[in-house]
Write a protein that binds this DNA or RNA. Sequence first.
DNA 1: CGCAGTATTGATTGATTTCAAGTCAAGTGG
DNA 2: CCACTTGACTTGAAATCAATCAATACTGCG
Lengths: 256, 256
Amino acid sequence: MSVSPIGGPCRPSPGTHCRTCSLSSLCLPLALKAQAMEDFDAIIKRRAPLVRGEVLCRQGEPFAQIFAVRSGSFKQVVLDQDGEEQISHFHLPGELMGLESIEEGSHAGFIIALERSTACEIPFHQLDALAERMPELRNQLYRSMSRVMGDEHRLIRLLTCKSADERMASFLLDLARRFERYGYSPERFRLPMSRTDIGNYLGLALETVSRILGRLQQQSLIALDGRELRILQPEALYQRSQTSHCRARPAVIHQS
Amino acid sequence: MSVSPIGGPCRPSPGTHCRTCSLSSLCLPLALKAQAMEDFDAIIKRRAPLVRGEVLCRQGEPFAQIFAVRSGSFKQVVLDQDGEEQISHFHLPGELMGLESIEEGSHAGFIIALERSTACEIPFHQLDALAERMPELRNQLYRSMSRVMGDEHRLIRLLTCKSADERMASFLLDLARRFERYGYSPERFRLPMSRTDIGNYLGLALETVSRILGRLQQQSLIALDGRELRILQPEALYQRSQTSHCRARPAVIHQS
DNA sequence: CGCAGTATTGATTGATTTCAAGTCAAGTGG
DNA sequence: CCACTTGACTTGAAATCAATCAATACTGCG
């Protein structure tokens, strides 16, 4: 099985393989040897590109696979019984989606393309079977899951007690951090989501989002042209993201 | 290696083994066969009991093991550079601790006993080695990690946009849910943490915590005697936990 | 076809309002 | 002394209401 310019059947993007994918070092196949990489490659299904607004995965679908962002970006939306929609994640290239649904057995939310995007589908039981034989892959999977936990952890700390300004600053820095992790510039990138989405994600009215971005821009911490963002003063932005005057924070380490 | 009334050396609680542990069906060994269970048992280190306030694990320690709560309960506290302390998790019997630190390579926070508690220590590389040979164990590990993700996910949704009342109701129901998962009554249990801790965890002043609990009690949704809690009207409490009037929640599924 | 005319949607900005939750303070009980 | 409760009072962060603007898409018409 060599890299051929003409892909097999059902391959929407002929010739795409993990070993030629620019994200392979960030996604799961990191550190796999050639043969292992091909085995891994063989279980991946490459989905046809999605346009903005298209649904990759519906909430409640039985869990059978995880997804990886190959290009573009996605939002994950949870719909609760009263019909409220809440964005729980944004997913950037190289990130895995759906890991939180293993235990539940069904997908926890809708995954929707924010722009023209492509994703790989990774059947979970096949991944597990492969992981059994490949310690590096197994390790990578643990690390990916752990990373998601760490990110969520950070987000929780972000949300618990931060003001709107602090949230926004944290949000931008989080994106920067992740873009950097995936090989993009952390100082200059495009926000793939609308202001409305940001507001929904951070629990703020969109006017508030707009206002805060305006303020940050006025103070030259960032420069914003539509969705094109530049972070001019990362350190200052970090300062801003730190909780300044938090109401409820007594020492807790040495008492119950 | 049979279950003997006298444990081996370094066993603080002689005779404690996974197969006799009442939590084995909730912790990792679930569904392991007898031999597998013994292999698993062999890598576990049982820590001496900790008293309230004692530290099981310090933030920044190199990651080498995860922990399981055997009895009692723990809080996980993150200390940030300005010296702010924030409780990121409470851990109940049967739950795993430290999974979010695999990727980082060092422990993400202090883990501190809330009462007289015992924990098992599970060296991670040995666990992984074992998991290689035992699909059920591997599966259980994925599920545990996924479960943590799901829980964090829920917590994020809880924190994003809920009022203090809604947070508190969600918090109580979350505890109930977890106690139930671990075989205790979901309607009647003891809050292992102080009001101060609850406030810190939810980002509220402790007076607010107290006030809300008082209010819930007055309305007969719960009955509280010190830390002894009874949930009198679970459905009503659930209603209360639902976001009533959320500011920022426009439809997002079908647009960017 | 192309083009003016018209919604539609996303974003910005200002003015005004409100109420949720913090703060301060006093008191109870183990 | 510490953990918690309760009351009275205050405040300010963010929502709401409202107006405006730019960009894009859609319509029908000559």
